[in-house]
Computed example of a mutant assay.
Amino acid sequence: MNNYIFDSHVHSNNSFDAKDSVKELCEWAVKNEIQGFCITDHLDINDCDEVMERSIIKSHEETREASEIYGDKLKLRVGIELGQPLQNQQLSERILREFPCDFIIGSMHNVKGEKDFYFMGKPDFQHRLEELLTKYYEEYYEMVKWGKFDVIGHITYPLRYIEGNFNIKVDMSKYNEIIFEMLKVAVDKNVGIEINVSGFRQPYGKQFPDFNHIKEYKDLGGEIVTIGSDSHNRFSLGQHFKEGKELLLEAGLNHYCEFENRKPKMISIL
């Protein structure tokens, strides 16, 4: 198996919940023979203000500066994780114009009018599970139809907390119809999916999304798949790529992608 690692989902300390600077991430990557990564700091549209926009400007400036320093040792790309874009579509459109990127992850962390799943407690999931997940995937489906991003981020994100933290089992078959339709729209719009391997280092214990979603995307003709650690510190940068590559091979894909100037480049796994 090819040992090449390009991590497409990495947060610097320009994200509110991350620890290490771009420079610290770069030094760790070079030391640990990671070939490249994209800084995808949070830009959650429902919480976006001047402070968050300044953080993204700083993130992009620091990434470009680091690319000048480490460019002969490391591929560095500029990106964002665009959260909940349809909760203010006009603002999302402006962000896309004013913040040129190599790569954009389209993510959903919360349903419109609700807290991020990260901040919800066990009673929320015990009493409102089906309501929350139905609304979540309905909004996600509309987001993919809008489709002005490169890959769909961590499609089963809520399970990180529902199953991983609170051990509440979710019957995902209830939501597979809309998820599969979402994947069909993604293939038609040339939008990819990510294998987010952060779950392997968390109580959840596996990747996002489920394997059957990866396989369905491939069977629908999808070819654009990235692997992301969703790292929030240098120690998890590039972790669990072996598991991500094995999942792709099992699904029938022998490559994953890195992005530059919003264009996917295939990386052979073999």
Rank of each mutant, 00 (worst) to 15 (best):
N2G: 14
D7C: 00
S8L: 04
H9R: 05
V10S: 02
H11E: 02
S12Q: 03
N14F: 12
N14I: 04
K19F: 08
K19C: 05
K23D: 10
I34N: 09
I39Y: 03
I39H: 02
I39G: 03
T40D: 01
C48D: 01
D49N: 14
M52F: 05
I56S: 06
I56H: 09
I56L: 08
E61Q: 12
A66T: 11
G71P: 01
D72Q: 11
K73Q: 09
K73H: 03
V78F: 08
V78I: 14
G79C: 08
I80E: 02
G83E: 04
P85R: 02
N88L: 06
N88I: 12
E93D: 15
R94I: 03
L96A: 02
F99E: 09
C101A: 14
M108T: 13
M108R: 09
N110K: 15
V111Q: 05
V111K: 04
K112N: 11
G113R: 07
K115H: 14
D116L: 12
K122T: 11
D124F: 12
R128W: 03
L132V: 07
T134H: 11
T134W: 00
Y141I: 00
V144G: 06
V144A: 01
G147Q: 05
G153W: 03
H154R: 11
Y157F: 14
P158W: 06
G164V: 10
N165I: 14
N165C: 13
F166R: 03
N167K: 12
I168F: 12
D171E: 14
K174A: 11
N176Y: 07
N176Q: 00
A186T: 06
V187D: 02
D188L: 08
D188M: 08
V191E: 00
G192H: 02
E194L: 15
Q202E: 15
K206V: 13
F211Q: 10
N212Y: 08
K218W: 09
L220S: 00
G222M: 05
E223C: 13
T226D: 12
I227M: 10
K242V: 15
K242S: 15
L249T: 09
A251D: 03
G252V: 04
L253W: 13
N254G: 04
Y256D: 08
R262P: 07
K265N: 10
I267M: 04
S268L: 14
I269P: 01
I269D: 01
